[in-house]
Simulated scan of single mutants.
Amino acid sequence: MPHLTVHVLEDDLVGREAELIEALTDAVVAVYGDWARDIVDVRLIGLPPGRWGIGGKPAQAPSPSVLFGIKEAAFGRPDAEDIVARLVSGVTDAIVAVFGEPVRSGVSVELVGSPAGRSGIGGVVITS
C-alpha cells in the first residue's frame, strides 16, 4: 500500500486538502495503474508557522515535503529506476498543480522502502 505523508505549512494547506489528496492519488495511479487507487493512503500534516526549521531558523516559506512509503521489493525490480523517477516526478507535479510553480524547486519526495514482514494491517504482518 503506498503511503504518502505530506508536510506543508498549515496556512498553505487550508482549503486545498481534497484537491491535494486527489492529485497525489492520481499521480500514484499514473505509475501503478488504476488497481492502486483504493489503497493509496495520503496523510496531510499542516504545520503552524514557526514549527518548521531549515538551516537552524524557522522557515519562512518552505515547499511541501513528501515521505512516500513503498514496498522495498519495488526497488529490486528491473524497472526500479523508471518507477522511482516517475513517482518523484508525478508527486512533484501534483504538489505544483495545487500550490503553484514557485514551490517546485523546493519540493522534496523521499521514497522509503518497507521490507516484507516489517509492517502490518489490521494486526496481521504483511509478508509479501
Rank of each mutant, 00 (worst) to 15 (best):
V103L: 06
E81N: 10
G117P: 10
V42C: 04
E101M: 02
P62A: 07
G123L: 13
E72A: 15
I21E: 14
E110P: 02
H3L: 14
P48N: 04
A97H: 03
G76W: 01
E22W: 15
P102M: 09
R77Q: 10
V29C: 03
P78T: 07
P62C: 09
I21K: 11
H3C: 14
I21D: 14
I126W: 07
V88H: 06
A36N: 03
A74H: 02
A116V: 12
P49G: 07
I39F: 07
P62S: 06
R86C: 11
V91Q: 05
A61C: 02
I39N: 05
V8C: 07
A36G: 02
D12K: 02
G76C: 05
A18G: 05
P49Y: 01
E101K: 04
A59H: 02
G46W: 04
F75L: 12
A94Q: 10
S65Q: 07
V98A: 14
A73T: 10
G56K: 01
V42R: 03
P115M: 05
G53M: 06
S114N: 06
R43W: 12
E22K: 10
H7L: 06
G90T: 15
Y32T: 08
R104H: 01
R43I: 11
P58A: 13
E19F: 12
D26N: 05
R86E: 07
F75H: 06
F75P: 03
I126E: 15
V109Q: 02
A23N: 12
I121N: 04
V29S: 08
D41P: 01
V112K: 01
L4D: 10
E101Y: 00
E101F: 00
A80E: 05
V14D: 15
R51M: 13
K71W: 09
D11L: 03
A73V: 12
T127A: 08
I95S: 03
L111E: 10
S89C: 07
V91E: 12
G69H: 11
G117R: 09
Q60D: 11
V8I: 10
R16Y: 06
V124N: 00
G90C: 15
D82P: 09
V107I: 14
D11G: 12
V103P: 00
W52F: 08
G33M: 03
L9G: 01
E19T: 08
A85Q: 11
A94I: 10
S128A: 09
G33W: 10
R77V: 13
V107G: 13
A97Y: 09
R118C: 11
D12P: 00
G46H: 08
V6Y: 00
G55N: 11
D41E: 07
D12R: 04
G53A: 15
A23Y: 11
A61T: 03
V96D: 13
H3A: 13
A74N: 04
D93E: 14
D12E: 08
E22F: 15
G69A: 09
V88A: 12
G122M: 15
I39V: 12
S119K: 02
G90D: 14
A36I: 10
H3T: 14
